[in-house]
Amino acid sequence: MTDTMILPRRLLLGAALATPALRGAKAAGEVIVRTPGGVYDDIMRQHVYDPFTRETGITVRPVAATGAKLIAMFRANNVELDLIDTGDKQLLALENMGALAPIAYDQWRWSKPEDIEPEVKKTYQCGNFTYATVLAYSKTAFPNAHPNSWAEFWDAGRFPGPRMLADAATGSPNFEFALLADGVPKDQIYPIDIDRALRAMTRIRPQIRRFWDTGALSAQMMSDQEVVLGSIWNGRLQTLIDRNAPLAYTWNEHMIQVQALGVFKDARNKEGAQRLADFMMQPNVQAAYAKQLIYGPTNKQAQQFLTAEEKARMPGGENSQRSGFYQNINWWEDNRDRVNRAWSRWVLR
Protein backbone atom coordinates (compact mmCIF):
# COMPACT_ATOMS: atom_id res chain seq x y z
CA MET A 1 0.00 0.00 0.00
CA THR A 2 2.28 2.68 -1.21
CA ASP A 3 -0.30 5.34 -1.82
CA THR A 4 -3.74 6.54 -0.96
CA MET A 5 -3.86 9.70 -2.98
CA ILE A 6 -5.20 9.73 -6.45
CA LEU A 7 -2.23 11.46 -8.05
CA PRO A 8 0.64 10.11 -6.13
CA ARG A 9 3.43 10.34 -8.59
CA ARG A 10 2.64 13.28 -10.74
CA LEU A 11 4.85 15.73 -8.99
CA LEU A 12 7.50 13.18 -8.52
CA LEU A 13 10.55 14.78 -10.04
CA GLY A 14 9.87 18.33 -9.14
CA ALA A 15 9.06 17.32 -5.63
CA ALA A 16 12.00 15.01 -5.30
CA LEU A 17 14.50 17.48 -6.53
CA ALA A 18 13.17 20.80 -5.38
CA THR A 19 11.85 20.14 -1.91
CA PRO A 20 13.41 22.55 0.52
CA ALA A 21 14.83 21.04 3.67
CA LEU A 22 11.98 19.57 5.66
CA ARG A 23 13.80 19.67 8.91
CA GLY A 24 13.49 22.65 11.16
CA ALA A 25 15.41 23.70 14.19
CA LYS A 26 14.13 21.08 16.63
CA ALA A 27 15.96 18.35 14.73
CA ALA A 28 16.93 16.20 17.67
CA GLY A 29 13.45 16.18 19.14
CA GLU A 30 11.64 15.23 15.97
CA VAL A 31 11.17 12.13 13.87
CA ILE A 32 10.05 12.63 10.29
CA VAL A 33 8.21 9.65 8.94
CA ARG A 34 7.10 8.80 5.43
CA THR A 35 3.48 7.67 5.39
CA PRO A 36 0.81 6.97 2.76
CA GLY A 37 -0.96 10.16 3.93
CA GLY A 38 -4.65 10.96 4.24
CA VAL A 39 -6.80 9.29 6.89
CA TYR A 40 -3.88 7.00 7.68
CA ASP A 41 -2.04 9.91 9.29
CA ASP A 42 -5.00 10.75 11.52
CA ILE A 43 -5.30 7.20 12.80
CA MET A 44 -1.58 6.89 13.40
CA ARG A 45 -1.40 10.25 15.14
CA GLN A 46 -4.08 9.19 17.55
CA HIS A 47 -2.74 5.75 18.35
CA VAL A 48 0.98 6.04 17.78
CA TYR A 49 2.51 9.48 17.25
CA ASP A 50 0.83 11.44 20.03
CA PRO A 51 1.26 8.69 22.66
CA PHE A 52 4.89 8.39 21.55
CA THR A 53 5.45 12.10 22.01
CA ARG A 54 3.86 12.01 25.45
CA GLU A 55 6.12 9.12 26.40
CA THR A 56 9.41 10.44 24.97
CA GLY A 57 9.05 14.14 24.23
CA ILE A 58 9.97 13.43 20.62
CA THR A 59 7.52 14.88 18.12
CA VAL A 60 6.52 13.02 14.97
CA ARG A 61 5.94 14.61 11.60
CA PRO A 62 4.37 12.53 8.83
CA VAL A 63 5.22 13.48 5.25
CA ALA A 64 4.17 11.98 1.93
CA ALA A 65 6.82 10.74 -0.49
CA THR A 66 6.77 8.35 -3.41
CA GLY A 67 9.23 5.52 -3.85
CA ALA A 68 11.16 7.43 -6.44
CA LYS A 69 11.41 10.41 -4.16
CA LEU A 70 12.91 8.25 -1.43
CA ILE A 71 15.44 6.93 -3.91
CA ALA A 72 16.17 10.43 -5.18
CA MET A 73 16.85 11.59 -1.62
CA PHE A 74 19.21 8.74 -1.03
CA ARG A 75 21.05 9.22 -4.31
CA ALA A 76 21.32 12.98 -3.90
CA ASN A 77 22.79 12.36 -0.46
CA ASN A 78 20.05 14.47 1.04
CA VAL A 79 17.99 12.17 3.23
CA GLU A 80 15.27 14.30 4.71
CA LEU A 81 13.33 11.78 6.69
CA ASP A 82 14.08 9.17 9.28
CA LEU A 83 11.48 6.43 9.33
CA ILE A 84 9.85 4.95 6.25
CA ASP A 85 6.38 3.47 6.63
CA THR A 86 5.62 1.88 3.28
CA GLY A 87 5.10 -1.33 1.31
CA ASP A 88 7.61 -4.07 2.04
CA LYS A 89 8.61 -4.27 -1.63
CA GLN A 90 9.55 -0.60 -1.63
CA LEU A 91 11.73 -1.15 1.40
CA LEU A 92 13.36 -4.17 -0.19
CA ALA A 93 14.35 -1.99 -3.15
CA LEU A 94 15.87 0.58 -0.80
CA GLU A 95 17.60 -2.18 1.14
CA ASN A 96 19.13 -3.54 -2.05
CA MET A 97 20.52 -0.08 -2.79
CA GLY A 98 22.11 -0.02 0.63
CA ALA A 99 19.94 2.82 1.83
CA LEU A 100 18.67 1.23 5.06
CA ALA A 101 20.00 0.64 8.52
CA PRO A 102 19.20 -2.67 10.26
CA ILE A 103 16.20 -2.60 12.58
CA ALA A 104 17.58 -2.35 16.11
CA TYR A 105 15.63 -5.28 17.55
CA ASP A 106 18.17 -5.63 20.39
CA GLN A 107 17.41 -2.09 21.57
CA TRP A 108 13.64 -2.57 21.75
CA ARG A 109 12.11 -1.55 25.07
CA TRP A 110 8.39 -1.59 24.46
CA SER A 111 7.92 -4.53 22.08
CA LYS A 112 9.31 -8.04 22.13
CA PRO A 113 10.92 -9.13 18.88
CA GLU A 114 9.90 -12.73 19.46
CA ASP A 115 6.21 -11.72 19.37
CA ILE A 116 6.48 -10.51 15.77
CA GLU A 117 5.28 -12.84 13.03
CA PRO A 118 8.43 -14.37 11.55
CA GLU A 119 7.29 -13.70 7.97
CA VAL A 120 7.51 -9.95 8.48
CA LYS A 121 10.43 -9.66 10.87
CA LYS A 122 13.48 -9.04 8.75
CA THR A 123 16.88 -7.52 9.24
CA TYR A 124 16.22 -4.26 7.43
CA GLN A 125 12.48 -3.99 7.80
CA CYS A 126 9.75 -4.94 10.16
CA GLY A 127 6.14 -5.34 9.03
CA ASN A 128 3.73 -3.18 11.02
CA PHE A 129 0.54 -4.61 9.58
CA THR A 130 -0.72 -6.86 6.83
CA TYR A 131 -3.35 -6.04 4.29
CA ALA A 132 -5.05 -8.31 1.82
CA THR A 133 -6.03 -8.03 -1.81
CA VAL A 134 -9.41 -9.74 -2.00
CA LEU A 135 -11.98 -10.64 -4.61
CA ALA A 136 -14.86 -8.17 -4.32
CA TYR A 137 -18.23 -8.27 -6.03
CA SER A 138 -21.37 -6.21 -6.37
CA LYS A 139 -24.37 -7.67 -4.55
CA THR A 140 -26.61 -5.82 -7.01
CA ALA A 141 -25.07 -7.55 -9.99
CA PHE A 142 -24.80 -10.92 -8.23
CA PRO A 143 -27.64 -11.22 -5.73
CA ASN A 144 -27.46 -15.02 -5.63
CA ALA A 145 -24.47 -16.87 -7.00
CA HIS A 146 -21.25 -14.89 -6.91
CA PRO A 147 -17.66 -15.69 -7.87
CA ASN A 148 -15.82 -17.40 -5.06
CA SER A 149 -12.42 -17.91 -6.61
CA TRP A 150 -10.18 -16.32 -9.18
CA ALA A 151 -11.10 -19.06 -11.64
CA GLU A 152 -14.71 -17.93 -11.32
CA PHE A 153 -13.64 -14.30 -11.57
CA TRP A 154 -12.10 -15.26 -14.92
CA ASP A 155 -15.34 -16.93 -16.00
CA ALA A 156 -17.08 -14.10 -17.82
CA GLY A 157 -19.67 -16.46 -19.22
CA ARG A 158 -21.03 -17.39 -15.82
CA PHE A 159 -20.41 -14.02 -14.18
CA PRO A 160 -20.74 -11.31 -16.80
CA GLY A 161 -19.96 -7.64 -16.23
CA PRO A 162 -17.07 -5.19 -16.22
CA ARG A 163 -14.15 -5.96 -13.91
CA MET A 164 -10.99 -4.39 -12.56
CA LEU A 165 -7.59 -5.67 -11.51
CA ALA A 166 -4.52 -3.95 -10.14
CA ASP A 167 -2.11 -2.14 -12.42
CA ALA A 168 1.64 -2.54 -12.19
CA ALA A 169 1.58 0.99 -10.83
CA THR A 170 0.31 -0.36 -7.50
CA GLY A 171 3.60 -2.19 -7.16
CA SER A 172 2.58 -5.41 -8.86
CA PRO A 173 -0.07 -6.46 -11.34
CA ASN A 174 -2.29 -9.34 -10.22
CA PHE A 175 -0.22 -12.09 -11.79
CA GLU A 176 -0.84 -14.33 -8.78
CA PHE A 177 -4.58 -14.28 -9.37
CA ALA A 178 -4.12 -14.88 -13.10
CA LEU A 179 -2.10 -18.02 -12.33
CA LEU A 180 -4.63 -19.22 -9.75
CA ALA A 181 -7.35 -18.72 -12.35
CA ASP A 182 -5.23 -20.68 -14.80
CA GLY A 183 -5.11 -23.65 -12.42
CA VAL A 184 -1.72 -23.15 -10.75
CA PRO A 185 -1.86 -24.38 -7.12
CA LYS A 186 -1.38 -21.73 -4.45
CA ASP A 187 1.97 -23.11 -3.32
CA GLN A 188 3.39 -23.20 -6.85
CA ILE A 189 2.70 -19.60 -7.86
CA TYR A 190 6.35 -18.58 -7.40
CA PRO A 191 8.48 -18.26 -9.38
CA ILE A 192 5.83 -16.66 -11.54
CA ASP A 193 5.72 -17.71 -15.17
CA ILE A 194 5.23 -14.23 -16.59
CA ASP A 195 4.21 -15.42 -20.03
CA ARG A 196 1.62 -17.77 -18.62
CA ALA A 197 0.25 -15.04 -16.33
CA LEU A 198 -0.04 -12.63 -19.25
CA ARG A 199 -1.73 -15.26 -21.38
CA ALA A 200 -4.33 -15.69 -18.67
CA MET A 201 -4.62 -11.91 -18.38
CA THR A 202 -5.22 -11.71 -22.11
CA ARG A 203 -8.27 -13.96 -21.72
CA ILE A 204 -9.95 -11.69 -19.19
CA ARG A 205 -8.72 -8.40 -20.63
CA PRO A 206 -11.84 -7.63 -22.71
CA GLN A 207 -13.81 -7.65 -19.44
CA ILE A 208 -11.36 -5.36 -17.67
CA ARG A 209 -12.66 -1.84 -17.60
CA ARG A 210 -9.56 -0.54 -16.03
CA PHE A 211 -6.43 -1.60 -14.18
CA TRP A 212 -6.56 0.48 -11.03
CA ASP A 213 -3.46 2.27 -9.91
CA THR A 214 -4.57 3.86 -6.66
CA GLY A 215 -6.60 2.67 -3.71
CA ALA A 216 -8.93 5.62 -4.12
CA LEU A 217 -9.71 4.76 -7.72
CA SER A 218 -10.41 1.11 -6.90
CA ALA A 219 -12.87 2.15 -4.21
CA GLN A 220 -14.51 4.69 -6.49
CA MET A 221 -14.97 2.19 -9.29
CA MET A 222 -16.56 -0.36 -6.96
CA SER A 223 -18.88 2.09 -5.27
CA ASP A 224 -19.98 3.71 -8.55
CA GLN A 225 -20.72 0.24 -9.95
CA GLU A 226 -18.35 1.16 -12.73
CA VAL A 227 -17.24 -2.46 -12.30
CA VAL A 228 -19.11 -5.36 -10.70
CA LEU A 229 -16.05 -7.47 -9.87
CA GLY A 230 -12.56 -6.57 -8.83
CA SER A 231 -9.46 -7.12 -6.83
CA ILE A 232 -9.21 -4.59 -4.02
CA TRP A 233 -7.51 -3.97 -0.69
CA ASN A 234 -9.71 -5.33 2.06
CA GLY A 235 -9.62 -2.14 4.13
CA ARG A 236 -10.73 0.01 1.23
CA LEU A 237 -13.64 -2.29 0.51
CA GLN A 238 -14.64 -2.78 4.15
CA THR A 239 -14.96 0.98 4.55
CA LEU A 240 -17.47 1.04 1.68
CA ILE A 241 -19.38 -1.89 3.08
CA ASP A 242 -19.53 -0.23 6.49
CA ARG A 243 -21.17 2.71 4.72
CA ASN A 244 -23.83 0.32 3.39
CA ALA A 245 -22.59 0.02 -0.17
CA PRO A 246 -24.12 -3.13 -1.76
CA LEU A 247 -20.71 -4.79 -2.01
CA ALA A 248 -19.15 -7.92 -0.59
CA TYR A 249 -15.97 -9.97 -0.86
CA THR A 250 -14.60 -13.41 -0.29
CA TRP A 251 -11.57 -14.28 1.77
CA ASN A 252 -10.94 -17.19 -0.52
CA GLU A 253 -7.56 -16.94 -2.31
CA HIS A 254 -6.69 -13.54 -0.88
CA MET A 255 -3.15 -12.29 -1.13
CA ILE A 256 -1.48 -10.95 1.97
CA GLN A 257 0.81 -8.00 1.56
CA VAL A 258 2.85 -6.26 4.17
CA GLN A 259 3.26 -2.66 5.22
CA ALA A 260 6.59 -2.29 6.95
CA LEU A 261 8.97 0.08 8.67
CA GLY A 262 12.53 0.86 7.63
CA VAL A 263 15.11 3.34 8.84
CA PHE A 264 17.31 5.37 6.49
CA LYS A 265 20.91 4.65 7.29
CA ASP A 266 21.76 8.33 6.70
CA ALA A 267 18.79 9.57 8.72
CA ARG A 268 19.51 12.52 10.97
CA ASN A 269 17.42 11.11 13.75
CA LYS A 270 18.13 7.42 13.34
CA GLU A 271 17.73 6.74 17.01
CA GLY A 272 14.37 8.45 17.21
CA ALA A 273 13.26 6.44 14.19
CA GLN A 274 14.29 3.16 15.80
CA ARG A 275 12.42 4.08 18.95
CA LEU A 276 9.28 5.03 17.06
CA ALA A 277 9.37 1.66 15.27
CA ASP A 278 9.73 -0.11 18.61
CA PHE A 279 6.81 1.87 20.00
CA MET A 280 4.59 1.16 17.02
CA MET A 281 5.04 -2.61 17.28
CA GLN A 282 3.51 -2.92 20.78
CA PRO A 283 0.55 -5.31 20.92
CA ASN A 284 -2.01 -2.82 22.26
CA VAL A 285 -0.84 -0.02 19.96
CA GLN A 286 -1.00 -2.31 16.93
CA ALA A 287 -4.41 -3.59 17.91
CA ALA A 288 -5.73 -0.05 18.19
CA TYR A 289 -4.68 1.18 14.77
CA ALA A 290 -5.23 -2.17 13.06
CA LYS A 291 -8.86 -2.11 14.19
CA GLN A 292 -9.41 1.23 12.54
CA LEU A 293 -7.44 0.53 9.40
CA ILE A 294 -9.09 -2.90 9.20
CA TYR A 295 -5.68 -4.39 8.52
CA GLY A 296 -3.99 -7.19 10.42
CA PRO A 297 -1.53 -6.73 13.29
CA THR A 298 1.86 -8.38 12.98
CA ASN A 299 2.48 -8.76 16.68
CA LYS A 300 0.97 -12.09 17.76
CA GLN A 301 0.15 -10.64 21.17
CA ALA A 302 -2.11 -8.02 19.57
CA GLN A 303 -4.72 -10.66 18.81
CA GLN A 304 -5.80 -10.75 22.46
CA PHE A 305 -6.98 -7.15 22.21
CA LEU A 306 -9.31 -7.90 19.32
CA THR A 307 -12.83 -9.32 19.35
CA ALA A 308 -13.83 -12.23 17.15
CA GLU A 309 -15.77 -9.93 14.81
CA GLU A 310 -12.83 -7.60 14.50
CA LYS A 311 -10.53 -10.49 13.65
CA ALA A 312 -13.00 -11.71 11.05
CA ARG A 313 -12.62 -8.42 9.20
CA MET A 314 -8.84 -8.52 9.11
CA PRO A 315 -6.24 -10.50 7.28
CA GLY A 316 -3.50 -12.27 9.20
CA GLY A 317 -5.69 -14.34 11.52
CA GLU A 318 -7.55 -17.53 10.86
CA ASN A 319 -8.90 -16.20 7.55
CA SER A 320 -5.44 -16.05 6.19
CA GLN A 321 -4.25 -19.36 7.52
CA ARG A 322 -7.17 -21.05 5.83
CA SER A 323 -7.27 -19.40 2.45
CA GLY A 324 -4.67 -16.72 1.96
CA PHE A 325 -1.08 -16.60 0.82
CA TYR A 326 1.78 -14.16 1.32
CA GLN A 327 2.99 -12.27 -1.68
CA ASN A 328 6.60 -13.18 -2.43
CA ILE A 329 8.21 -9.80 -2.64
CA ASN A 330 11.65 -11.22 -3.26
CA TRP A 331 10.49 -12.63 -6.54
CA TRP A 332 8.89 -9.31 -7.49
CA GLU A 333 11.94 -7.30 -6.53
CA ASP A 334 14.26 -9.63 -8.42
CA ASN A 335 12.09 -9.45 -11.52
CA ARG A 336 11.10 -5.80 -11.37
CA ASP A 337 12.54 -4.81 -14.75
CA ARG A 338 11.33 -7.88 -16.55
CA VAL A 339 7.81 -7.59 -15.14
CA ASN A 340 7.42 -3.92 -15.91
CA ARG A 341 8.74 -4.20 -19.44
CA ALA A 342 6.52 -7.18 -20.15
CA TRP A 343 3.55 -5.45 -18.55
CA SER A 344 4.00 -2.21 -20.45
CA ARG A 345 4.31 -4.08 -23.70
CA TRP A 346 1.30 -6.25 -22.94
CA VAL A 347 -0.86 -3.38 -21.81
CA LEU A 348 -0.05 -1.40 -24.96
CA ARG A 349 -1.11 -4.19 -27.27
Partner: peptide
Protein backbone atom coordinates in the same frame (compact mmCIF):
# COMPACT_ATOMS: atom_id res chain seq x y z
CA UNK B 1 -8.16 2.39 -20.34
CA UNK B 2 -5.44 -0.24 -20.06
CA UNK B 3 -3.89 0.42 -23.45
CA UNK B 4 -3.97 4.20 -23.41
CA UNK B 5 -0.40 4.67 -22.36
CA UNK B 6 1.28 7.83 -23.53
CA UNK B 7 4.97 8.47 -23.51
CA UNK B 8 4.92 10.63 -20.38
CA UNK B 9 3.16 7.84 -18.50
CA UNK B 10 5.79 5.39 -19.63
CA UNK B 11 8.51 7.73 -18.38
CA UNK B 12 6.73 7.95 -15.06
CA UNK B 13 6.55 4.16 -14.88
CA UNK B 14 10.25 3.85 -15.51
CA UNK B 15 10.99 6.35 -12.77
CA UNK B 16 8.49 5.18 -10.23
CA UNK B 17 8.08 1.47 -10.78
CA UNK B 18 11.19 0.15 -12.39
CA UNK B 19 13.55 2.72 -10.87
Amino acid sequence: GPGDIMIAMLIEREVELTY
